[in-house]
């Protein structure tokens, strides 16, 4: 059953990208355990505004775990202590009365802080722009059923395509690598006949862009898969490596 709890928050505050940040301590009282974590943040912000202070800036939008906008490093874990959820799907029933909760932004060279808990993830768009698509224009394509695709392939492609681009994999990785993100797109498209044509070139270009943007290398720690709210498997990294090697051999 739902009950109300009191908690202490240690929240990272940083005015902008240039200034130094610090942790601030806040008390939030009588939070229903049925509330979502971000609703708790709303309560904190309402409190701050009523005290005449600036509310905590954090990214969020759909609040149902699909847009990938929310982030937050909560008690040392991307998207917090629950498994298989984004921060917006995390509920306060995962916390106990009297808990202290540490809230930080994603921390990675690839994701500079914009303000408080908001980071800049445009690097992900740049990686997609470097090759994360099938090169077709609008119109002039064959009938949707012209090429049968084995169901297991379509299903596996869908597993990979579930990535929401939140960046938890990068935040979780001690090397700040974006390999899980890149591999999910490479793998999805390589599994489908429509995307197979460009598979090797795509892998090469996306990896090169990832390196250029300051993301680290993959050392197979597997932390990304554990923290991925959508359960994207590191097996996709193996497929990415295969496509990448193919491209290198062709060079």
């Amino acid at each position: 059953m739902e009950k109300n709890i009191n908690i202490t928050l240690k929240v990272w505050r940083q005015k902008n990208a240039r200034e130094k940040g610090r942790f601030e301590t806040y008390q939030v009282k009588d939070v229903s355990t049925g509330s979502s974590f971000l609703e708790m943040m709303d309560i904190l912000n309402e409190q701050l505004i009523n005290e005449g202070n600036e509310p905590v800036a954090f990214d969020h939008d759909c609040r149902e775990g699909i847009c990938g906008m929310c982030s937050l490093y909560i008690n040392g874990r991307p998207h917090g202590p629950d498994d298989g959820v984004t921060t917006c799907q995390l509920h306060m029933r995962k916390f106990k009365d009297g808990d202290t909760i540490w809230i930080e932004p994603w921390r990675s060279a690839g994701f500079p802080v914009i303000k408080d808990l908001i980071v800049d993830r445009t690097a992900f768009d740049k990686i997609i722009a470097s090759g994360g698509y099938v090169s077709v224009n609008t119109g002039g394509v064959p009938d949707a059923n012209a090429i049968p695709i084995p169901k297991p392939d379509a299903d596996e492609a869908m597993d990979a395509a579930s990535c929401i681009g939140c960046g938890a994999c990068v935040a979780a990785c001690k090397n700040g690598s974006a390999m899980l993100f890149v591999s999910a797109k490479v793998s999805q498209l390589a599994l489908l006949p429509q995307g197979k044509v460009e598979a090797a070139r795509r892998a090469k270009n996306m990896v090169a862009k990832m390196d250029e943007l300051g993301f680290g290398n993959c050392t197979n720690t597997g932390a990304c898969e554990v923290e991925c709210p959508k359960g994207i498997s590191v097996a996709h990294i193996a497929r990415l490596n295969r496509e990448f090697l193919k491209a290198k051999v062709q060079d």
């Binding site: 698509y133 099938v134 077709v136 609008t138 119109g139 394509v141 064959p142 009938d143 949707a144 059923n145 090429i147 049968p148 695709i149 084995p150 169901k151 379509a154 299903d155 492609a157 869908m158 395509a161 999805q188 498209l189 489908l192 429509q194 995307g195």
Partner: peptide
């Protein structure tokens, strides 16, 4: 009908039957 064709060409992983069709 053209929308579905377009999306499949882009690599949208629609649900499929065992025969491989949509």
């Amino acid at each position: 009908t053209s929308i579905i064709d377009q999306c499949v060409a882009q690599g949208v992983p629609f649900a499929r039957e065992y025969g491989g069709l949509l």
